[in-house]
């Protein structure tokens, strides 16, 4: 999980990017990998991940002039765009069978030993996460994969911190029930 840059750096770069659009390249360099991996983890397809990532940054470029620092990391705003773009894509194109297929794969993984088994276990867990209701899924990805603070996740999702905590708790409980206590 990549760490977020300090608030000071971020604000300065964002402000500069507002006045000088070319400075947007710095923001792109800083956040590209995080956003790409986030999108990829949802799409599981390189071409789709590339399309959505392009969309995210194009939208960010178009709207950065309207971006206002509310004390949240700039990345939270990018994640918000990414999340909406991913969901738009799901709504328009994603076949429902994929999720079921993935669940089958998740449950049928062979029992490997030690580390190999652990990696396999992780794949199963994250495959189960993808079967959770979307809000639980997003809250878990942003917390466990992106290492974001509850408050920032709440900002991305437009929910209260309490609601995010509840989503995470429910998500984790559901995952544990599904995969069993094998870890």
């Amino acid at each position: 999980m990549s760490s977020l840059p300090s608030r000071w750096d971020e604000q300065a770069v964002v402000e500069r990017a507002k006045r000088d659009p070319a400075a947007f390249g710095e923001l792109y360099d800083r956040y590209f990998l995080q956003i790409y991996r986030f999108v990829y983890s949802k799409m599981r397809d390189q071409t789709a991940a590339e399309d959505v990532t392009s969309e995210v940054f194009m939208k960010a470029l178009k709207n950065i002039g309207r971006y206002q620092d509310t004390g949240k990391p700039f990345s939270a705003w990018l994640y918000q765009i990414a999340m909406n773009s991913v969901f738009d894509r799901y709504r328009s194109a994603r076949p429902v069978e994929d999720i079921d297929d993935r669940r089958d794969l998740a449950v049928d993984g062979p029992g490997l030993e030690e580390m190999a088994a652990q990696r396999d276990e992780l794949r199963r867990i994250w495959a189960v996460v993808e079967t959770l209701p979307k809000p639980q899924q997003v809250a878990m990805v942003l917390k466990f994969q992106e290492d974001m603070k509850i408050e920032d996740i709440a900002a991305v999702m437009g929910k209260s911190a309490g609601a995010v905590k509840l989503l995470i708790h429910r998500g984790v409980t559901r995952v544990r029930q599904t995969v069993g206590s094998t870890v």
Binding site: M1, F32, L33, Y36, R37, Y40, S41, Q46, A49, E50, T53, Q118, R119, L122, R123, I125, W126, K143, F144, Q145, D147, I168, V172, R176, S181, V183
Partner: peptide, 19 residues
């Protein structure tokens, strides 16, 4: 404990390298 473990474990997409 489960959440701690999951938090410490690398996500399967963590190593994905974009083109």
């Amino acid at each position: 404990e489960f959440a701690r473990w999951l938090h410490a474990a690398p996500h399967p997409a963590a190593g994905v390298e974009p083109d």
